[in-house]
Nucleic acid binder design. Sequence first.
DNA 1: AGAAAATTCGAGTGGGTACTCGAATTTCAT
DNA 2: ATGAAATTCGAGTACCCACTCGAATTTTCT
Lengths: 206, 206
Amino acid sequence: MTTKDVGRAARRGPYAKSEERRRTILDAAHEVFAAHGYRGGSLQDVADKVGLSQTSLLHYFPSKRDLLMAVLERRDEITGDAFPDDMEDGLVDSVIRTALFNENIPGVVELYSVLCAESVTDSHPGRVYFTERFERLRKSYARRFAELAAQGRLRPGVDPELAAMSLVALWDGLQTQWLLAPDEVDVVKGLRGYFDLVVLPEPSPN
Amino acid sequence: MTTKDVGRAARRGPYAKSEERRRTILDAAHEVFAAHGYRGGSLQDVADKVGLSQTSLLHYFPSKRDLLMAVLERRDEITGDAFPDDMEDGLVDSVIRTALFNENIPGVVELYSVLCAESVTDSHPGRVYFTERFERLRKSYARRFAELAAQGRLRPGVDPELAAMSLVALWDGLQTQWLLAPDEVDVVKGLRGYFDLVVLPEPSPN
DNA sequence: AGAAAATTCGAGTGGGTACTCGAATTTCAT
DNA sequence: ATGAAATTCGAGTACCCACTCGAATTTTCT
C-alpha cells in the first residue's frame, strides 16, 4: 500500500486448471488446423471441440494467429525435431527413427505439410516459422553430413549442404505423397534409399 | 423448322470474345489462388482483377470449385508436364529443362505447392487431381528409370519405382523451400545432385 | 431489322468469420 | 468470508463469403 504500488494492479497467477485447459485447446486446434488448414479452420470449430465458447477460447489465445503460433510451438515439443543436434545416434538412425515415429501421428504430419505450403502465401503468420525452421534444419543436417564426410563415410563428390537441402526436401515431399496415398508411398523406404546412395557403410573393424 | 425441333431451343455458340475472357479469368484466378490458396482466395478477388462483377464471373464458371479445376487444367497446359512420356530427350534432360523453366514462373510453382498441400485437407476439390497426378508421375518416371536400368545406366541396387517416388518428392520439396528462400535454395542443383547419384554417365563410344 | 441467345450486373440471401463488450460466475489469496 | 482477479459467456459488430434472381444490355444469326 505504499505510494509506489499505486496503479499497480495486484497480479494473481492463472488458476489451477488453466494450464491443462490451454493444453486441451492446443490439441483441439492442432486437429482443426490439420484437417482444414489455418484459413479453413475456424475458432468456432476449435471451441466446439473443446466444449467452450468462442469467447472463452479467445481468453486463452487472444487471436487466431496467436493460437496458430502456439500450435506450431507445441508441435515442436511433440516431435522434438527442433534440436536434431542433441541426438546421440547417428544422423541416419535419428532421421529414420523420427520418420517411423511420424507414421503413427498422421495428424501431426498433416498439420505440418498443410501449414508449410499455406505459409508461402501472402503474409501468412506461419511463414517466419517455416522459413526459420528450414534454415535451421538445413544447417543442422549439413553439419551432420560434414561429420560423416570427415569420417570418410560420405560418398565422394557429395556436397554436405546440398545433401542436407535434399534430405529435407525429400522428406517433406515423401510425407505429402504419403498423406495422399498412404498405401503406395513409404516414407521410411524412400529415406533409406537416399541414405544408401549418399552415406557409405561403416567400415568393418577387421 | 421441322416438328422435331419443337421444344429444342436454338442453341447458339458463345460470342467471339468469350473464349478470350475465359482465359483472362483463368489467369487472374491462377494469380489469386497462388497468392492466397483456394480457401484464402475469393471470387471477388478474381473478379476485381479481371474488372468484372462477381456475378459475371460465375456466368463463365458456375462455382468456385469449377474455377479451381479449370485453373489446374490450365496449369497442365502451361507446363505440359502432364505427358512426360512424349519427351524425346532423356529423363534427366527433360526434368532439368522443366525445372529451369519453372524458375521463371514462380507463380505457377506457388499455385502448385500451395494447392497440393491444401488438397490433403478434408474434402478439398483438388484432392483427386493431385492424387492422380502423383500416381501418373510416379508411374511415368518409374518407366523412364527402368529404361535407363535396361541400358545399364542406373546405379546397381536402385529400384526404379523408389527412384521415381523420390524424384517427385525431392522436386516438390525443393520447390517449397525455394519459394520460402529463393536465394538459398537451388532446385536445379538439387535435382542434378540426385541424378548424379542415381544415373550413371553415358558410356563413351570409344 | 428483329429476335433470340449470350453476356453483364445490382441487389439480395443465408451464412460464416474473427473479434469486442459488458456482465455474470468461479476461484483463490488473504 | 470476502473481495479482487481469473474465467466464462451471450450478444453484438462489422465484414466477407459463395451463390441466386431477375432484369438490362450486347452480340449475333436470320
